[in-house]
C-alpha cells in the first residue's frame, strides 16, 4: 500500500498559540482514517494547513508523491484533494446544482470566450458538467428534484450531503471530511456513514474524517490519529486507540460529560 498523504513535523502557530505542534501523519491510499481529539485540539487547523488555506511555519506536506507546500488551495484541489467544512460552507444563494458545478471547476474545460460565443465545445462541456452534477446529487443520496433549490433552503442533513457532492465533483483522490455527521440524528448518521464507506469502496477515494461521534469513528476507521493540544498523542487501529491510556485521559479527564469513548 502506498502513502497518499504525508505530514512531517508540521507546525502551525497563531501568534503565540501553537495550534498544530510538530505533527506527523500518514494516510494510506484507499484507506478510511479518522482524526479525533477534544474541541480546540487543532484538528480543523490541520485540515486547513493540508488544503493550503494556512501556510505551516515548519514541516513538510507531501501529497501523491509531491510536496504541496506553497501551493494555493485551488492548485491543491486541482491535484486531487478536496474537503468539506465543519460549519457547512455552501454557496447559499446558488442552487444545489450550481454548488456542485462550482466543485467541478477544475474538471470543466470551458472558457469565457466559449461562454460568450456559445460555442459547441462550451455547450458540450456545460451539458456534460450538468449531467455529472445531477449524477453526483443522486449518488450522495439526495432526491432528484433538489437541483434547482437554493442551497440555503435545504435542511441541515441535506446540506452536508450537498457539500460532499460538491467536493466529489472535483474528482478527488483524497477527501477530507470535517465533522461530517455533526448535528445529525442517529438515522442520518448511520446513512452518512454508509455513504463514506461507499465512496471508498466504489470510487476508491481515500477518506479522512474528523469526527466526534465515537460510534462512527470506531465503526468505520481503519486507523485513528488522536490530537490533543496540537500534538499527536496516539495512533493505531480502533482497538489500540481505545485502550490507550493517554487517549482515555485526554477525553475522560477534561470532557467526561460531552464525549464518551465507550462503544458497544
Amino acid at each position: 500500500m502506498s502513502v497518499i498523504l504525508e505530514l512531517n513535523k508540521v507546525t502551525k502557530r497563531f501568534g503565540g498559540l501553537v495550534a498544530v505542534n510538530a505533527v506527523d501523519l500518514r494516510f494510506e491510499a484507499g484507506s478510511i482514517s479518522s482524526v479525533i481529539g477534544p474541541n480546540g485540539a487543532g484538528k480543523t487547523t490541520i485540515f486547513n494547513t493540508i488544503t493550503g488555506i494556512y501556510k505551516p511555519e515548519e514541516g513538510e506536506i507531501r501529497f501523491d508523491g509531491h510536496s504541496i507546500l506553497g501551493l494555493r488551495p485551488d492548485q491543491i484541489t486541482a491535484r486531487g484533494m478536496c474537503r468539506t467544512f465543519q460549519n457547512i460552507r455552501l454557496f447559499h444563494n446558488m442552487t444545489v446544482l450550481e454548488n456542485i458545478l462550482v466543485g467541478a471547476h477544475t474538471q470543466t474545460p470551458s472558457t469565457a470566450w466559449g461562454a460568450v460565443l456559445r460555442t459547441r465545445a462550451f455547450k458540450q462541456s456545460e451539458e456534460a458538467a450538468r449531467q455529472e452534477a445531477q449524477r453526483l446529487l443522486l449518488y450522495v443520496g439526495l432526491p432528484r428534484g433538489l437541483g434547482d433549490q437554493l442551497a440555503r433552503n435545504l435542511p441541515y442533513g441535506q446540506q452536508r450531503r450537498v457539500e460532499i457532492a460538491r467536493a466529489l465533483a472535483s474528482k478527488p483522490k483524497l477527501l477530507l471530511l470535517d465533522e461530517p455527521t455533526a448535528g445529525m440524528n442517529p438515522q442520518e448518521t448511520e446513512s452518512a456513514t454508509q455513504l463514506f464507506r461507499k465512496l471508498r469502496d466504489e470510487l476508491g477515494i481515500t477518506v479522512v474524517l474528523i469526527e466526534h461521534d465515537m460510534k462512527v469513528v470506531m465503526n468505520i476507521s481503519e486507523r485513528i490519529s488522536v490530537i490533543d493540544y496540537g500534538q499527536k498523542i496516539a495512533e493505531g487501529t480502533p482497538a489500540e486507540v481505545r485502550k490507550d491510556q493517554r487517549v482515555i485521559e485526554a477525553y475522560l479527564g477534561r470532557h467526561a460529560e460531552s464525549t464518551t469513548i465507550s462503544v458497544h
Binding site: P73, L90, V102
Partner: peptide
C-alpha cells in the same frame, strides 16, 4: 458568497 469555500473547490481567486 464565500471565497474560502470557492478557493477550496478549485476556483483561483
Amino acid at each position: 458568497e464565500d471565497d474560502v469555500a470557492a478557493v477550496a473547490m478549485g476556483v483561483p481567486l
